[in-house]
Design a protein around this nucleic acid. Structure first.
Lengths: 125, 125
DNA sequence: CGGCATCCAGGACGATACTG
DNA sequence: CAGTATCGTCCTGGATGCCG
């Protein structure tokens, strides 16, 4: 085991980043918010505490570009726009949820490890 | 369905980011590289095409801090240092792999969606 | 209400050069 | 070999303000 690493092991996987960071730090939460069904712009702002309209719009446009969400504008007054996961976006939900579950399950470990590590670093100062 | 969104739905999940972006764009690949067993610093640089020593060192230190990898230095000449996934780090591999598989499976969709979207944008110019 | 334009701060990352 | 130091760049994302 521990064969030599393939220099090109990430050749076809280079865009791992687009997944991990498809549109920035909000993407994951936005998908979670849209998991149940269509949501309005302002509706999304609620759970995404403190996200600025600009950032939310940018994230949504990016995800729309990637075919993850669809945008539907209604010519009403006042204006109404709804965002919804596409079928592609819905397929992304599952692995993302798995990742989130890992976080929930191991957050204490992360925190503990960090505390231990920082404590050790402090001693050697 | 489509109940109102919980304002605090991410309250305990705020650190989703640490997972999605645990240490930046290299973390995922580093974990993949360490999946099979311990690796040396310079060994990791090979598949991580173009990563600078500084960035690799920073990524590794960050992951070590989070308890995801362990560092073992051997007092030899020439120096040798090996990095290895901790048990915690190994538990992270599975969900990460799932996410990578999603990327591999749906990359064509992403590219197609992006092309379509960009084409539409070009028309309206 | 939805969302774009502008400005700006901070962090991630690369290039290069240098140590134990 | 395994880093560290310094510098510079790019990008993310927040603040503010204007438009349909």
């Amino acid at each position: 085991m521990t064969r030599p690493l393939e220099p090109d092991m990430f050749a076809g996987c280079a865009p791992v980043r687009p997944l991990i960071q498809i549109g920035g730090k909000w993407t994951v939460k936005i998908i979670a918010c849209l998991a149940e069904g269509p949501r309005r712009f302002s509706e999304l702002q609620v759970p995404l505490r403190g996200i600025t309209p600009k950032t939310l719009a940018a994230s949504l446009r990016s995800m729309e570009r990637d075919g993850l969400v669809s945008r539907t504008a209604y010519a009403e007054n006042p204006p109404r726009v709804e965002y919804e996961l596409t079928s592609l976006g819905r397929t992304l939900f599952r692995p993302l949820a798995a990742a989130c579950e890992w976080t929930s399950a191991h957050l204490p470990d992360l925190i503990a490890a960090r505390a231990t590590h920082d404590a050790g670093a402090a001693l050697s100062t």
